[in-house]
Amino acid sequence: MAVFTRGFGGRRPDSERPVPPGQYLTDDFPVLSIGPTPNVDTSTWQLTIRTEEGAEHRWDWAALQALPAEDVTVDIHCVTRWSKQDTHWRGVPVDAFFADVETAAEYVVAHSFGGYTTNLPLDDLLDGRAWVVTEYEGEPLEPLHGGPVRLLVPHLYLWKSAKWLRALTLHLDDEPGFWEQNGYHLYGDPWSEQRYG
């Protein structure tokens, strides 16, 4: 039998829109970390896409700025059960980075500075469903929230939106990332409550 704690967690906002099952709304943006926050300098930052054949495509900070960015308003859902509605980001759709990438691979592993990884189907990064973002709520993305550059894939649980993004590698098979190797779901759809694998 569950033991409930009177008066704990009673100040959560109500939702006018449905939230995914088992999620609770928050106005905060909790910072959850698995290690020291990497100190990533935009003067040396690079994003690398490496295909299954080993071909590499690179963008430095100036090249990233030259790509067409857009403003994005989305709801985000963390597997630790908080959701946050109407968050505002600015970034480049991932499609822009794949315009000249030739690949037969169906899977991607996103790599972060600091060693974190997470796996996604390539299709979930394309068609305007995922962004490489550099601003949050009108400000440069803070290091604590993944700045200067993170991935944003709002239709999947937030662990898929790798902070401190440095590379996307393409794979013929789905290769589990950090949390996926340790028991979390390979895909992570919040609406189907795909928390654990």
Binding site: L32, S33, I34, G35, V79, T80, W159, W179, N182, G183, Y184
Partner: peptide, 9 residues
């Protein structure tokens, strides 16, 4: 130890 709510690292 980083006690992330998804798991302790």
């Amino acid at each position: 130890v980083y006690r992330h709510p998804m798991g302790a690292v």
